[in-house]
């Protein structure tokens, strides 16, 4: 196989673009990997506190959010298929649905966090610092992991918004949709990480 030699074209060809994205996703996995490692180590030393604190989390909201994210992954995948079939309107609608679901996720997260804040349970608060050390560690991890994940949800949603504008402008179309594919890949990562966060934080008690 001979390579064409871009750098001379303005558009990055789709293979190249996707490869860059996959490498970036690796780095994201390693970023969260550090936190998962910390989780494993700290859980090992503080298993009882983790058990107690995890029982306090709201499994109902967590489950809803898992379903929401899974559905959003489906809509974004469907959006690609729609654009491949040249159905621009449907592709955009499906992206809007994905962004809506991201919004639902964030609202749920907001309620979940603010519920904790009502109980004065934020990092550094008096109630928080008076907990057992091991519970503090759990809540610390909980806030850090879900917080970083929420940040990724926001970035992913912004990417999807940009993609919608690019589709509207006709830059992304059935012949060239690397941006849509890349934003979708990123979105699947956001979903994937949640799939691991959910059982680790909510279900193992």
């Amino acid at each position: 196989m001979t390579n064409t030699s871009p750098g001379h074209t303005h558009q990055i060809d789709s293979e190249t673009g996707k490869m860059g994205m996959w490498l970036f996703l690796f780095t994201e996995l390693f970023l969260f990997g550090g936190l998962f490692l910390a989780y494993a180590v700290l859980r090992n030393t503080h298993s009882e506190g983790f058990h107690k604190a995890a029982a306090e989390l709201d499994i109902f909201i967590g489950t809803i959010n898992t379903v929401v994210l899974l559905m959003s992954s489906m809509t974004v995948a469907m959006s690609i298929t729609a654009l491949q079939k040249d159905n621009k309107r449907l592709a955009i609608r499906l992206l809007l649905a994905t962004i809506f679901l991201a919004g639902v996720f964030m609202v749920n997260k907001y309620f979940e966090w603010s519920h904790k804040f009502e109980h004065h349970l934020w990092p550094g608060s008096e109630v928080y610092l008076n907990l057992e050390r091991s519970e503090i560690t759990f809540y610390g991890l909980y806030y850090m992991m879900t917080g970083l994940h929420a940040l990724h949800v926001i970035i992913g949603a912004i990417l999807l918004v940009v993609t919608i504008f690019r589709i509207k402008a006709g830059v992304q179309h059935s012949g060239h949709y690397v941006l849509l594919e890349n934003s979708a890949l990123y979105w699947h990562l956001v979903d994937l990480i949640w799939i691991f966060l959910f059982p680790l934080l909510y279900l193992i008690t």
Binding site: A38, L42, P123, Y128, I136, G140, L141, Y143
Partner: peptide, 8 residues
């Protein structure tokens, strides 16, 4: 850890 007093 510094800002939020999370104990890692």
């Amino acid at each position: 850890e510094r800002v939020l007093h999370i104990g890692f």
